[in-house]
């Protein structure tokens, strides 16, 4: 596979980002080929969530280049909205639309953005809810669901747009421990189906089991980029060793 014939699904090249005086992304380079599952690990404050949010321009960058499927991110406007429609995103805090039922949440974007007829959108939405295992909750409001169910609904909502790539920004960090697995199972299923995924997470089990590649970030830099086996058994950098030492001992 040559780079010229198939551009990577995500290309991040020389990206810098500042929050005021704070340098949160330092010359970040990252390519995610189609179909690959990349897990981004790192201590909090390392810039991994920010990196994830820059890819659909929820956070604008100060310099560098980001391309999705060979297309550079456009400036805010209709063009960017079109690109975002192809990039699914799942948030730490679910962000389901509080005033709409679960099935309406899943239908909204296909109907408004893709102009899918409502009946067809509803049918697809129900299939997706079936797939994430909460079809029986379709007519409830988000607040009536458990965290795990809400996050699975949020994944279904993102999938309803038939995205080329899915971004997960700490999808299980706001969940009670017993609900983490149900969300990870859905994500593992997606990975098996060949979805291109960038997952920011603290779930080492998921990284080991489902990731093709692990990116380790620290202080705004990509410190390691390797396979899960390599990263967990023989981390190269001291920062990664230190990080793994802290999380794997308990």
């Amino acid at each position: 596979m040559t780079a010229a014939s198939t551009p990577p699904m995500i290309r991040v090249a020389g990206v810098d980002k500042f929050f005021g005086p704070l340098h949160v992304l330092k010359n970040v380079q990252l390519e995610v080929p189609k179909g690959q599952v990349v897990v981004v690990l790192g201590p909090s404050g390392s810039g991994k969530s920010t990196l994830c949010r820059t890819i659909n321009r929820l956070e604008p960058i100060d310099s560098g280049l980001i391309e999705v499927d060979g297309q550079p991110l456009p400036a805010e406007g209709k063009e960017l909205a079109r690109l975002r429609a192809d990039v699914g995103m799942v948030f730490q805090s679910f962000n389901l639309f509080a005033h709409k039922t679960i099935v309406e949440n899943v239908m909204l974007a296909p109907v408004k953005v893709r102009r899918t007829p409502a009946a067809e959108a509803r049918k697809t939405a129900m299939e997706l809810l079936e797939r994430v295992g909460i079809a029986n909750q379709a007519e409830k409001f988000p607040a009536q669901l458990s965290g795990g169910q809400q996050q699975r609904a949020a994944i279904a909502r993102a999938l309803a747009m038939k995205p080329k790539v899915m971004l997960f920004d700490e999808p299980t960090s706001a969940l009670d421990p017993e609900m983490v697995q149900e969300v990870l199972d859905v994500m593992t299923g997606l990975a098996k189906d060949g979805m291109t995924m960038l997952v920011v997470t603290h779930e080492m089990g998921f990284a080991r089991k489902a990731a093709d590649r692990v990116i380790f970030m620290s202080d705004g830099e990509v410190v390691e980029d390797s396979t899960p086996e390599e990263f967990f058994s023989a981390p190269k950098s001291n920062r990664a060793k230190d990080f793994l030492g802290k999380i794997l001992t308990h």
Binding site: N56, R84, N95, V113, R157, M161
Partner: peptide
């Protein structure tokens, strides 16, 4: 909550 707007934008809503 700002997340409601972010989720809308992430889905491609104008």
């Amino acid at each position: 909550p700002v997340g409601q707007a972010e989720a809308s934008r992430a889905l491609g809503l104008t």
